[in-house]
Amino acid sequence: MAGDLYSLERRKRRKQQAGRVALYVALSAYALVILYPLFWVAVNSLKDNQEIFTNPWGLPSHPLWANFREAWSDGRIGMAFKNSVIVTGLSVVILALVSPMAGYALARLRFAGQKTVFYLLLSGMFIAPITGLIPLLKLLRNLDLVNSYFALILPNVAYGLPLSVFIMRSFFIGIPKSIDDATMVDGLTRWQTYWIVMLPMALPALYTVIILQTVYIWNEFLFALVFVRAPELFTLPRALVTFKGTFITSFGPLNAAVILSAIPTIILYAIFSDKIRRGMSMGFSAKG
């Protein structure tokens, strides 16, 4: 009897173990599906055209680093990289300055029109960027901003604001009110409280905003497609499209260009994977 129970237990454990192995196999297969296309691009970026077609599975017989040089200069990826750094950098700096201020005001202060501001910003989370595209282009034309960095920076900031402000707002709501009260008892004004006490406390949330918006704006395409016509101002996603259109058969350099454009956000993700995952899943479920 006891022996039966024992073997039953053992059989159960063995079954569990088999289940675990099956699970690992399934998850590894899925991971392979995710990683393979990226691996394939990386490998192809070091092959010449002929080898891409004749040796589709293998590693490059002799890595062709010239592909990267060609993408960087002939494909104007270097120029686009610089533009992406400028556009992303300036947009994120503005967002990092402006959204904590608004977030604090919405979280802590009571003022006339608060509800309106709240709902206006909220609407920014679910209205698709393409809805306002045509009037936005008209506006940028009237302001003579088309074909300048600001044609990308200002819309990116405007559309990045809602999420950034709400991230900051929810962080400020989580800070106990007693801290505000204590600083005001100490004689600080609201204004001083914000800059001296609250903003430094909110740095973790601010980092989330900065990292998240860097990824979003680095990858932004629609505004880059419509608001900038001069190739010297193209950001990376826009330059990729043009490069693909003009060098339609230089597969090696094209693959290299894809790698070059993706490396910065992949590095960022490698460092801050938790922050990015949490922030983006929050952002997406909010943006709807």
Partner: peptide, 24 residues
């Protein structure tokens, strides 16, 4: 204080988000 803190965000958001989405 609230308006001062909100001003920069609201100007950019008003001009480059609210206005185009109404004009459309």
């Amino acid at each position: 204080v609230a308006y001062a803190l909100l001003l920069p965000a609201l100007v950019i958001f008003g001009v480059f988000f609210v206005y185009p989405n109404l004009e459309v």
